[in-house]
Design a protein around this nucleic acid. Structure first.
Length: 417
RNA sequence: GGCCCCAUCGUCUAGCGGUUAGGAUCCAUGGUUUUCAUCCAUGUUACCGGAGUUCGAGUCUCCGUGGGGUCACCA
């Protein structure tokens, strides 16, 4: 079983999305369950509605899950497990507060406090936290990208598992949940390498003996501040392209640059991911987005611009020569159907051409249309194509008119005005 | 600062001791297109530095340098 465990405390970052995509992909490869766990342990930071937003994003990317659950529903269970550790003398109560933590590590002063101490503290209403005892041996786990990862005891202190409110900390709750769910592989980012060791320590202290595989992905760096999924959508990138790009980043040996998630499930190997951090490259994503838009169903594409006509999808694809995102395509398609601006040096010619079109019969081919228009107007070619283009597309430049014509033909009267 | 990871064109990368250091993207130029773009062709651009090991090092070792991560009652 694999899980995606997002924190509902902000917009989803592409690093998180990459974790989700890979978790889903590996679950499919291993034919194991894929579940979503909303890690809403921190009541202070949780943002109302973020959880449904997360689920909507996953749906857009077609990362289908088997189950979804909230950490907040299980807190009592994790508290019980923490108390269990206290009783087994694997954890201790600590009343040090913030004092000894003057940018130093935990002093270990309360190390021997046991559960009798707990009773006393409860009676006297003294604030306390519960800390798990630090490991006596190095924590070693297997990472599919990095091999055996060893964290020495010195890196892992006796860390807090229940805070002063009695709330399980994220690390503790996460470890407990993974254990209880039977998660077999955990994908996260390199920021959590040490957390993984802590969680493994927790699971070992709780007596969990199943082997868990881990992967810690390198981060995607960017000088851009909010590299969120939301932002990518706003820019007009489509899910298939985003998936393609995120899977391609740092991958060594893909059979082709352009692919879909189902295709990647056939050949993707975590071991072939580079351990080096990668830089987010908008230009590359634009290229990939363009390629996926080219492959998109024409009618589906047209609906994104408010049509239900395959011809408009085909028309939009002509503009992929100069546009790479939905947003840019929209900026090309919209002026075609919007009322034209006649102001400018070509105004007389445009007025003439408009009138001819409004009274013209339906003409099938652009060649015939061109000849008809040239005959009727008496214009020279040099004074003809520019105003015609402006009249038909609202733009000075664009794809060949003979390519555009077949798709806009049915809308000609509306367009040429 | 301690510890961990990483280091090839601007970017993503191929390369597992002997290569004209390859591809993709981006960029530039030429051709085609009645215009721009597309398309096709061509081209510029890279092994972080220094010591070793070796007949020979992008490739192995060490030391620098640079980048990233991590050291919470944050998740």
């Amino acid at each position: 079983m694999l899980r995606f465990a997002p924190l509902p405390i902000g917009d989803m970052h592409i690093n998180e999305l990459r974790v989700a995509i890979l978790s889903y992909l590996i679950a499919q490869q291993k034919k194991e369950r894929f579940i979503v766990r909303i890690d809403d342990t921190d009541k202070e930071k949780v943002i109302e509605g973020k959880d449904t937003e997360i689920m909507q994003i996953l749906e857009k990317f077609a990362l289908n899950h088997d189950t979804v659950l909230h950490q907040s529903e299980k807190m009592h269970l994790y508290q019980t497990l923490a108390i269990g550790l206290l009783e087994k003398n694997k954890a201790f109560v600590c009343t040090c507060g913030d004092e000894p933590l003057q940018n130093e590590r935990y002093s270990g002063r309360c190390f021997e406090a046991d559960k009798e101490e707990l009773a006393k503290l409860k009676n006297s209403c003294t604030p306390f936290v519960v800390r798990i005892k630090k490991p006596e041996l190095p924590i070693i786990y297997h990472d599919a990208m990095r091999g055996e990862v060893e964290s020495s005891q010195s890196e892992i202190d006796s860390f807090v598992i229940l805070d002063a409110n009695g709330t399980p900390t994220h690390n503790f709750a996460s470890a407990c949940a993974d254990m209880l769910l039977g998660v077999t592989m955990i994908i996260s980012t390199q920021a959590h390498i040490l957390d993984t060791a802590k969680q493994k320590h927790i699971k070992m202290q709780l007596g969990y003996e199943e082997v868990t595989d881990y992967v810690h992905l390198p981060d995607i760096l960017s000088d851009q501040e909010n590299l969120t999924v939301k932002w990518l959508f706003e820019q007009g990138f489509i899910p298939d392209a985003i998936i393609n790009y995120l899977l391609l980043l740092g991958y060594t040996d893909s059979p082709s640059e352009i692919f879909t998630l189902p295709e990647a499930i056939e050949w993707f190997r975590l071991e072939k991911l580079s351990k080096d951090t990668v830089t987010f490259d908008l230009e590359k994503l634009r290229f990939i987005n363009r390629e996926h838009l080219k492959k998109m169903n024409d009618r589906d594409l047209s609906t994104l611009f408010g049509f239900a006509d395959a011809a408009i999808g085909k028309l939009a694809k002509l503009y992929l020569e100069e546009a790479s995102t939905l947003k840019e395509l929209e900026a090309k398609i919209h002026p075609i159907f919007a009322p034209k601006d006649f102001e400018g040096v070509w105004e007389p010619q445009m007025r003439t051409l408009e009138e001819i079109i409004q009274n013209a019969p339906m003409i099938d081919s652009f060649e015939a249309f061109k000849h008809y228009m040239l005959d009727q107007s008496g214009f020279e070619a040099g004074h003809f194509f520019k105003p015609l283009r402006l009249l038909l597309t609202g733009a000075e430049y664009g794809p060949e008119l003979c390519d555009i014509y077949p798709f806009i033909k049915p809308y000609l009267l509306e367009i040429a005005s």
